[in-house]
Design a protein around this nucleic acid. Sequence first.
DNA 1: CGTGGACTTGATTTGAGTCAAAGGAGGTGG
DNA 2: CCACCTCCTTTGACTCAAATCAAGTCCACG
Lengths: 252, 252
Amino acid sequence: MSTVCPVNVSRPTRSTDGCPNCGFIAWCLPANLTAHESKQVHERIRHRHLIKRNERLYYAGAALTSLFVINSGFVRTSITNSDGREQITGFSMAGELVGMEGFGMGKHLCDRVALEDSSLCGIAYTDFEQLTRDIPALRHHVYREMGAEIARSHRIMLLLGSMHAEERVAMFLLNVSGQASALGYSKTHFRVSMTRKDIGNYLGLKLETVSRAFSHFNNTQLIAINGKDVEIENLVQLRQIAGDYGTCGPCL
Amino acid sequence: MSTVCPVNVSRPTRSTDGCPNCGFIAWCLPANLTAHESKQVHERIRHRHLIKRNERLYYAGAALTSLFVINSGFVRTSITNSDGREQITGFSMAGELVGMEGFGMGKHLCDRVALEDSSLCGIAYTDFEQLTRDIPALRHHVYREMGAEIARSHRIMLLLGSMHAEERVAMFLLNVSGQASALGYSKTHFRVSMTRKDIGNYLGLKLETVSRAFSHFNNTQLIAINGKDVEIENLVQLRQIAGDYGTCGPCL
DNA sequence: CGTGGACTTGATTTGAGTCAAAGGAGGTGG
DNA sequence: CCACCTCCTTTGACTCAAATCAAGTCCACG
């Protein structure tokens, strides 16, 4: 537990050519960089780190040497306290930058594990630091993304602090749906790649409670669920149960 | 509810002279600014905005025109969803910068209300943006503080997701104790300025449950409590109940 | 001095946790 | 390729921690 397991670096390349739909480049899009700025960023990206299912990207406390954007796959973020209690604080998918919260400290503040075989594009800490110095739009984007992460955490605190089990599960499904939709997939038919236990941990529930909520939604024709395969059959009512999806925004 | 209530600006001054122990200057200390950089920051601070108990600093959604550091007093941060459910996400005290999470968006993402008559020192959004551009150490400090805020939220998620009522309340008391201690006050004898209801909301508990936990700790000689006046009598055992204070760090 | 909010305490209810059993999926090695 | 094993999931019965409901006290403040 105390030794740090570095990401399995599989001959990353600097050229963009070998990285179609590069996640890092996609992440930068909302920053509206100029052609010149874009070029500066692209030159620093280390493309296509591969990581296997259940492999650890890093532990909390590990030196932060790189920041990663997920290209494909799924990553689970968690923290563990001295009792050994673990709390999953989020699931990240393609297009998301992970590790920002440790950027200022120079070390990671959470554990991150791949839920599936995943591909990541990274950038060295020092390169990124320099780029945010030189590119105001990128710096701004980092402030915006970090702020959004704080706001997201606050929404989960609301969920954990005051919502009932079925409301939480409904919210979870709507968030996965929103994520799938953002990636261009169906928002009513998708796969939840995490286990019931992980979902429960994230939502502050036991796995049996998550399973029961799924079964209940299934029996009342809100969803059709079969293992990890979910089809939402009544999006409107699911939103009513979740209560506030409209104003809440994505939580995952 | 929809109109934005601007902070009651009481003839703020630009000179440092009228602001002994200026909170903003204190907040900058860990950034280790050079004398010249310090001067740049000091020139932009608008000192001593006053705000009364229960007055609102701003609503979520309001344009972010200034960032504030608390000089004295206490501020409650919360979010509200469309159901009207509110979640208190933190209590801030002297020396803390509030509003960072909205910095990148240019608008506030949470509501902030004074728990007591408070004094704040502010800096205009555009001035701060400019300063973080020109002063690497300040920029770095912002990254660090925002990251710390994300990590703090994650710890609360752990608390809300897996801790029992008395563990939560013990954690809360240790955090208030830590805050008091950080300000140079006694860490065993302090005042909790928030109501039982606010404490409960923050901890995901009902006010009766908070009251019962306090009573129980009182009856078992862990604390001596009288209304808002708290004396910790057995810090060691309180930490044992909270479980992980050592590794958790401040949560408030 | 009276009124409303804050707090405490007790009795009761209930939503989610715990415990237990059994079916099912996926991965591994012979 | 099949058998086995492990982990995941579902469902039922029971328990329990915290919520709810209710009553009464204590202040602070107009």
